[in-house]
């Protein structure tokens, strides 16, 4: 599957022989337990190599958040993985038991959420929460765990970590809280970090510092990151590759620079036009129409209703076309070349 003969021109920084840390094969997530009636995500294929940062971009209804939850075994009980496999470091964890997930979480895979206020227990000091997660996985004494926690708090750029160890969540600013979340996620040195809109609730200046932090940690620890966001600019600041999702499926993927400068899918183009700001007085870019509900997904191309290039062929559901390694697009009429 991985082509070892050509040099990597697709954005993955490392030697093609490096292991795949997280792989999703044709994953679909459905409502219900036995094969389910309604799908919220279909045919998701994703691969993250060791040390790579992959961005998962999409708006509401794209299914990106539940895909992330599936990768840490935290799908709400009303949802389940219908088809496909999720592999962590080669191990099939699609239907792993909760006990098994408890062992994997923190050591193999960790997750950081959007709102640090609801992720941290307001009744306990942050230090003890980190210690708790260390001791859930390793038999170390409180003192050793505390020291490790203070170390990692310093590592994520929290000044005076020994004092902050005893702080309560509400005593910290949003940015600091998010750093604490990242610290807690990293303390057991997981192979992959999944971050679901981690900076959306933060100020722009704080966001920039968190992005720098994650970039640095990723390089230093050779940790893979799956960064989920609706913000294309944020994703392009730190991701090597990007996957664009729309209405529960992957529509385009590839190296960041290439996808964003020569987007082939009409949705990606529209998204880019909406995100880029023009001169004063110019009209703002947008995509007409709105994202369909899962019950309204077309049997053909799900973006067809909003696409200016749609024709009769688009009544057929387009398959994913592989352009090169890691570069793919799901469209009957992909765009060629850069925008004019």
């Amino acid at each position: 599957m991985i082509d070892t003969s050509t040099p990597s021109t697709d954005g993955s920084r490392l030697d093609p022989a490096t292991p795949v840390i997280l792989r999703l094969e044709d994953v679909s997530i459905v409502v219900g337990n036995r094969g389910g009636d309604r799908a919220l995500v279909t045919g998701l294929d994703l691969e993250i190599d060791k040390g790579e940062v992959v961005g998962l971009v999409g708006e509401s209804g794209s299914g990106k958040s539940i895909s992330a939850l599936a990768c840490v075994g935290l799908l709400p009980s009303a949802l389940s993985v219908g088809r496909g496999r999720i592999l962590l470091s080669g191990e099939d964890v699609t239907h792993a038991s909760e006990d098994h997930w408890r062992q994997l979480r923190g050591r193999e895979v960790a997750m950081v959420f959007q709102d640090p206020m609801t992720s941290l227990d307001p009744c306990f000091r942050i230090g003890s929460q980190i210690v708790e997660s260390i001791r859930a996985h390793q038999h170390v004494s409180r003192e050793v765990a505390a020291k490790r926690a203070i170390d990692v708090l310093g590592h994520v750029g929290i000044a005076d970590p020994a004092r902050r160890f005893d702080a309560f969540p509400h005593e910290l600013s949003g940015g600091l809280r998010q750093r604490v979340m990242i610290a807690a996620a990293l303390v057991l040195e997981p192979k992959v970090l999944i971050a679901d809109e981690p900076t959306t609730a933060l100020d722009v200046t704080t966001q920039a510092s968190i992005i720098e932090l994650v970039k640095g940690l990723c390089a230093e620890l050779s940790m893979s990151v799956l960064w989920i966001s609706h913000d294309l600019a944020v994703v392009s600041e730190l991701a090597d590759r990007v996957a664009v999702t729309y209405a529960g499926e992957l529509v385009e993927a590839g190296c960041i620079r290439e996808v964003f400068s020569e987007a082939r899918h009409h949705y990606t183009r529209g998204l880019l036009e909406s995100a880029v700001h023009g001169k004063r007085g110019e009209a703002f870019g947008f995509i007409s129409g709105s994202v369909p509900e899962p019950s309204d997904w077309s049997a053909g191309c799900r973006f067809g209703a909003r696409c200016s290039r749609a024709d009769e062929q688009c009544a057929q559901h387009p398959a994913m076309t592989q352009v090169r390694l890691h570069r793919m697009v799901r469209c009957h009429h992909p765009i060629h070349g850069a925008p004019s």
């Binding site: 708006e59 609706h230 909406s274 009209a283 703002f284 995509i287």
Partner: peptide, 14 residues
Amino acid sequence: LDVSMRGQILNLLA
């Protein structure tokens, strides 16, 4: 609002 929808509202306001 979703990014792809923002332009609609801003253009309307303009």
